[in-house]
């Protein structure tokens, strides 16, 4: 079977699965079910595409669907601030930097070796499977009830609520500031390491001894 046909079969199956999921969501919970199915399909489909695609840059672009889908899921949970932060940071920032890095990286030709694929699958898939089974066992499936307090009134995603909760409740602000300081230190260190020495910039510097 050639590459093109395989590609077509894969995407047809992916699209079919997404359609099925949307139908199931619509049948199960109406509009919100459909929206959930759509965003879940975007998230999972994007990640499957990211693994499937042979070109690294295409994989990186597939991540956009995943990030946007996750933002949509946050939106469905009525956490708008998280949804917008997800898009601003992951799609606008991290993905752009990722693409930048991917485009500057030469392709790794040993990528498709069977041993490497097997090792990678076991290393990542094993723990993921254990985690997934654990979550599936402990989750309460199909709970329908009243939303949590304050959510339906649209207060939940408001900036004021977040700010007040952030500053008062359990003093998250200290942990947040500490994390910010740690990140800044890491950033400065990275810049220091990556920065070229002055000698590297001068073309004749190495030749002086001759």
């Amino acid at each position: 079977m050639n590459e093109g046909a395989l590609q077509r079969i894969f995407y047809a199956a992916l699209g079919l699965l997404a359609l099925l999921a949307c139908g199931a969501g619509l049948a199960a919970a109406g509009g919100s079910g459909l929206a959930f199915a759509l965003f879940a399909a975007m998230t999972l489909g994007g990640s499957v595409m990211c693994i499937w695609e042979r070109s690294v840059v295409r994989s990186a672009f597939a991540l956009m669907a995943t990030f946007t889908g996750v933002a949509g899921l946050f939106l469905l949970l009525e956490a708008d601030f998280l949804a917008m932060a997800q898009i601003l940071i992951y799609v606008g920032g991290i993905l752009a930097l990722l693409l930048f890095a991917v485009m500057l990286t030469p392709p790794d030709l040993g990528e498709r070796k069977l041993t490497r694929i097997l090792a990678g699958t076991l290393l990542v898939g094993g723990p993921a499977l254990v985690l997934g089974v654990q979550v599936a066992r402990t989750a309460n499936w199909f709970v329908r009830g009243a939303p949590l307090d304050g959510r339906a009134q649209g207060e939940f995603g408001s900036a004021e609520r977040i700010g007040v909760g952030f500053l008062a409740a359990d003093q998250y602000v200290v942990a947040f500031e500490l994390a910010a300081v740690v990140l800044t230190v890491a950033l400065v260190a990275a810049v220091y390491i990556a920065r070229r020495k002055k000698a590297d910039l001068e073309p004749d510097a190495g030749r002086e001894g001759n």
Binding site: M64, D80, F81, A85, L88, V91, G92, L99, G157
Partner: peptide, 15 residues
């Protein structure tokens, strides 16, 4: 979070 929404959406132009 209007302005936050605008900044988030316009930042996807880069991609």
């Amino acid at each position: 979070l209007g302005i936050f929404f605008i900044l988030a959406m316009t930042s996807t132009t880069t991609i």
